[in-house]
């Protein structure tokens, strides 16, 4: 499996689509910060102290970086399907489970891990430039961003499942974006028609629930402005965030594997 992983890594390092996606993801936090400043019409130092950025804008950063995440994860799983070079992994005697596991691992490692690194780095960089701002517990912010790794892995697994089922990175990417659109529509219908909020399990809902501005507000405590998240990090949040992500990730990866295992590689 290690050999297959090394080979995939070698290919991804030379894939223009992957490099462009990573660069886009790297600059996304700063682009959003500048955009927010321009929208507010405020100087850079005032409009986005780091706490504000992390609490208010990180969900947008992750949601837009979803494009890059989808491209990279689908390319890791099925980038070698179009030219059939993936077949040479089987022809070399690697079994299907090891090939699938290596590709899943590469998909997560090349998309979720850089995105998490970029997210934390941007909070640090913006804190250095603009300061931390109002008194918000940095640990609380860091835990919330860190928790996002679980739904991101789930989303990544869903993309890879589509790629495996359709045996095509392109179709996987299209289905990933399509599914995101469907979830957005369903969420809106659920909230507007049935007045029922969905917070876990699908698309970016969990990440939005953990990080967005709807979920945090400014209050004055003992004369000091403090940023509070409406929902404290409760054990239920930990369990549901991690639990939903793990269950769905396993289900998605299993479906993808069953298709990969059963299908002839014609």
């Amino acid at each position: 499996m290690i050999n297959v992983l090394r080979s995939i890594n070698y290919g991804l390092r030379r894939d223009v689509g992957v490099i462009v996606s990573l660069v886009m993801m790297f600059f996304m936090p700063y682009t959003i910060m500048l955009f927010m400043c321009a929208a507010e019409g405020m100087p850079l130092s005032e409009c986005t102290p780091s706490y504000y950025f992390a609490a208010q804008n990180m969900a947008a950063v992750l949601a837009i970086s979803y494009v890059g995440l989808t491209i990279i994860s689908c390319k890791a799983m099925g980038g070698d399907s179009k030219d059939k070079t993936i077949n040479y992994e089987l022809l070399s005697g690697h079994n299907r489970l090891k090939i699938y596991a290596a590709r899943s691992l590469a998909g997560i490692a090349w998309s979720v891990l850089p995105l998490m690194f970029i997210s934390f780095l941007s909070v640090g960089v913006i804190a250095l430039i603009n300061g931390w701002g109002m008194e918000t517990d940095p640990i609380d912010v860091i835990i919330r961003i860190a928790l996002c790794v679980f739904p991101l892995i789930r989303i990544c697994a869903l993309n890879m499942m589509f790629t495996s089922v359709f045996n095509s990175a392109g179709k996987g990417i299209a289905m990933g974006f399509g599914m995101d659109l469907v979830i957005s529509i369903c969420t809106t219908i659920s909230e507007e028609v049935f007045h029922k909020e969905i917070d876990y399990g699908f698309g970016f809902l969990n990440i939005i629930f953990l990080l967005t501005s709807q979920n945090s507000r400014e209050v004055i405590i003992e004369g000091k402005p403090v940023n509070l998240f409406d929902t404290a990090l409760t054990p239920e949040m930990y369990i549901k965030t991690i639990g939903f992500a793990v269950v769905f990730t396993v289900v998605y990866l299993l479906i993808g594997y069953v298709v990969f295992k059963k299908k002839d590689r014609d």
Partner: peptide
């Protein structure tokens, strides 16, 4: 699968990343 490590194939398309 172990036997295939002693073999090499070129089937349909040669191995090539364009």
């Amino acid at each position: 699968n172990h036997a295939r490590t002693r073999m090499s194939f070129m089937i349909e398309a040669p191995y090539e990343k364009e």
